[in-house]
């Protein structure tokens, strides 16, 4: 474990990614707890440019962009996190059960998974979002999570069906472990790194999916997220009128967040797959 930690800390990609991500996290999660400002309070007019009063100007309704950015980052991270947790939990459960049981259960679960992979998830997301009227940030996270697990399930299944033939699993089996115990104690720990990386990808995908849905006008209600900010900026033609402060901050934050998560993932990949480490 110590060896892995040293490798992780020595990976430049991982460190840069982690520093960037922690900065965004601190800004979006700790920031609002320090400033205690209402992101919906009007402080100026339509698209006021940045000034001493409003560091990043105001949006289409005269609200402070900096405050919106802070709260919006928090919401986007929350949605991405919830989506990541939900998708990873479903994906790991389905994948592990299918891979471990094999036979009919495997074919059934993988049949469902493969069908869900071919149906574009954005379509299901749009349909679910218009069907659910009161979309809180939590609900959105769950919706995104339940539409994006199939990839994880497929990968976990492949790993499980190869891991279950190992000797230590057989040993545990003849010592009387039940199937659930075998999966939890003898199989999942061996692909922990893998599951963690899948979670990071799902987390990043969740943030992107939130932004996509929100930009189409299906964002969370009564709260601000990076996608919601972009939706209003687009609708009120901030880009074409040159009000860069209304759209550039959320664009930059979305980009930095997903880039940092990608760097963390690539760094971990190098640590866990020595093949990719090139001197």
């Amino acid at each position: 474990m110590g060896e892995v930690l040293i490798l992780v800390l020595r990976s430049r990609r991982f460190m840069i990614g982690a520093v960037l991500f922690l900065t965004v996290l601190a800004f979006g999660v700790i920031g609002p707890r320090i400033v205690h400002r209402d992101p919906f309070q009007m402080v100026g007019g339509l698209f006021d440019s940045p000034s001493e009063k409003a560091m990043l100007g105001t949006d289409n309704l005269g609200r402070d962009v900096f405050t919106q950015l802070m709260y919006g980052t928090g919401t986007s991270l929350l949605i991405g996190f919830v989506a990541g947790v939900v998708a990873t939990c479903i994906g790991v459960t389905v994948g592990a059960v299918a891979g471990f049981k094999g036979g009919f259960v495997d074919e059934l679960l993988m049949g469902i998974t493969n069908i869900l992979i071919t149906i574009p998830s954005i379509v299901v997301l749009i349909l679910l979002s218009i069907a659910i009227r009161s979309r809180s940030a939590m609900v959105m996270g769950v919706i995104i999570g339940i539409t994006s697990w199939p990839w994880t399930a497929r990968a976990v299944r492949a790993q499980t069906s190869s891991l279950k033939t190992r000797e230590h699993v057989d040993l545990a089996r003849i010592s009387g472990y039940t199937a659930v115990e075998l999966i939890i104690k003898e199989i999942l720990p061996y692909m922990f790194s893998y599951i963690f990386m899948a979670f990071i990808l799902q987390f990043s995908g969740g943030i992107t999916n939130e932004a996509t849905l929100s930009m189409l006008g299906l964002g969370p209600f009564q709260t601000v997220s990076l996608g919601v900010m972009l939706h209003w900026a687009l609708l009120w033609e901030a880009v074409r009128t040159g009000a860069w402060w209304a759209f550039l901050p959320p664009v930059v934050f979305l980009t930095i967040t997903s880039f940092s998560l990608m760097l963390i993932n690539a760094g971990l990949d190098e640590v866990f797959n020595p093949r990719l480490r090139k001197s």
């Binding site: 990609r13 992107t208 972009l230 880009v239 074409r240 040159g242 860069w244 880039f259 990608m262």
Partner: peptide, 20 residues
């Protein structure tokens, strides 16, 4: 690293930057 950077930008982020 560049590929990592661009591949994870949501499409429309680059679209907005290019448009502006």
């Amino acid at each position: 690293t560049l590929a990592l950077a661009v591949s994870n930008i949501p499409y429309y982020c680059l679209a907005i930057i290019l448009l502006y």
